[in-house]
Simulated scan of single mutants.
Amino acid sequence: MSSSPLYLQIKQFILDNIESGRWPVGHRITTELELTEQFSVSRMTVNKAIRDLVADGILQRRPRLGTFVCAPEEKAESPLLDIRNIAEEVVSRGQRYHNKVISQHELIADDFVAIKLGVMVGTAVFYSEILHFANETPLQLEVRWVNARYAPHYLEQDFTRITPNQYLSENCPLSAIEHTVEAIVPDNHIKTTLALSASEPCLLLNRRTWSGDRLVSSALLYHPGSKYKLTSKIVLS
């Protein structure tokens, strides 16, 4: 039996039914009373699971009729050949942006970080890990390393008020970017943080940014594959 909280097990049960096609768009799901009996839990526990899925736009309550499966929301979209502040992206779509700072500290570069940031092993660098939301839905997990030499005040910032992207753009004017994109099988930390279902794909954008000839920042940006896409436009002469 799963050790996860009961309301999460109920959420997963509902998501599994939707993703398998057993409960298509427009389908009225099992009632709260039936779920209460099926999982031997309180009505409050079932209500929390359904309330979370309603907030995520997966389910819709209809008074006196029941709870129904919604059509998938249009995926959030970012330009692959440019850098946009995720807070501005979310607001431009009419959604509410907020974030949660998971970690923000100095660390010593190991082999992996040294290669990512172009510094010597043993160099002190800055690290931040931030979860970005659109309304109440996790949209991006940002894991970032910053060269402390070029952004010495990075750790002093309140990243609930200004995003790392905005701060670095204002203090280390962008001259070049490097992007690589890949689909990954997320580890448990990423899966839990982004609230991914068991079969949810994860999209990873690797980004490095330069200011002049200085490699300032390296970031790993994780997105729920069902809610996010990257696009590019190339004009041919």
Rank of each mutant, 00 (worst) to 15 (best):
H98W: 05
A195M: 13
I115V: 09
T36A: 07
Y150A: 07
S211N: 07
G26N: 01
P5V: 08
P5N: 14
G225P: 03
V41L: 10
A198P: 03
A87Y: 08
K11R: 09
T45A: 06
V69E: 00
T123I: 13
E77S: 12
K227C: 03
A71N: 06
N206A: 12
S2Q: 15
A151T: 08
Q9K: 14
P5D: 10
C70N: 06
I190G: 08
N206K: 13
E129R: 15
I102D: 02
Y167A: 04
G21C: 15
D82M: 13
K233Q: 11
I83C: 03
I83G: 05
V113W: 03
G66N: 00
L230W: 09
M120K: 15
G225H: 05
I130R: 04
A124D: 11
I58C: 05
E200N: 12
L141G: 07
V54P: 00
W23V: 00
E34I: 00
E106T: 08
H179E: 12
E178D: 14
A109C: 10
H223I: 01
R61T: 06
S128H: 09
H223T: 01
L80N: 09
C70F: 02
S3I: 09
T163S: 06
F112G: 09
V125R: 01
M44Y: 09
S237T: 12
L35F: 00
A176N: 15
L81K: 13
W145T: 04
V25R: 12
C172Y: 03
S175K: 13
V90C: 07
Y222Q: 04
Q140N: 13
L196H: 14
H189P: 06
Q38K: 06
S103E: 11
Q38V: 03
P79E: 15
S197E: 04
G94V: 05
A148D: 02
Q12L: 08
S92V: 14
E182V: 10
P63R: 15
Q9I: 02
D187G: 15
V113F: 09
S128L: 11
P5T: 06
L8T: 02
A87H: 09
Q12F: 07
P63C: 02
P224L: 13
C172S: 13
L205Y: 02
S78Q: 10
P72K: 03
L131A: 08
L81D: 10
A114C: 13
T67L: 03
K229C: 13
G118A: 15
L205Q: 11
G212S: 13
Y127D: 06
S197V: 00
H98K: 11
V69S: 05
I10S: 00
R22G: 07
Q95H: 14
Y127C: 07
F126S: 12
G94Q: 09
M44Q: 12
Q60I: 00
M1F: 14
T67F: 02
V46N: 00
K233V: 12
T30H: 03
P224T: 03
N17F: 02
A55S: 14
F133C: 04
D213T: 08
E37N: 12
L8K: 15
H223Y: 15
E136W: 12
R64I: 05
I184Y: 15
P72E: 02
G118P: 07
D82R: 06
F133E: 09
T67P: 01
N206P: 05
S103L: 10
G21F: 09
P72T: 01
L65A: 03
P173C: 12
P224N: 05
M1I: 04
G57N: 10
V25L: 08
A87E: 10
A76M: 10
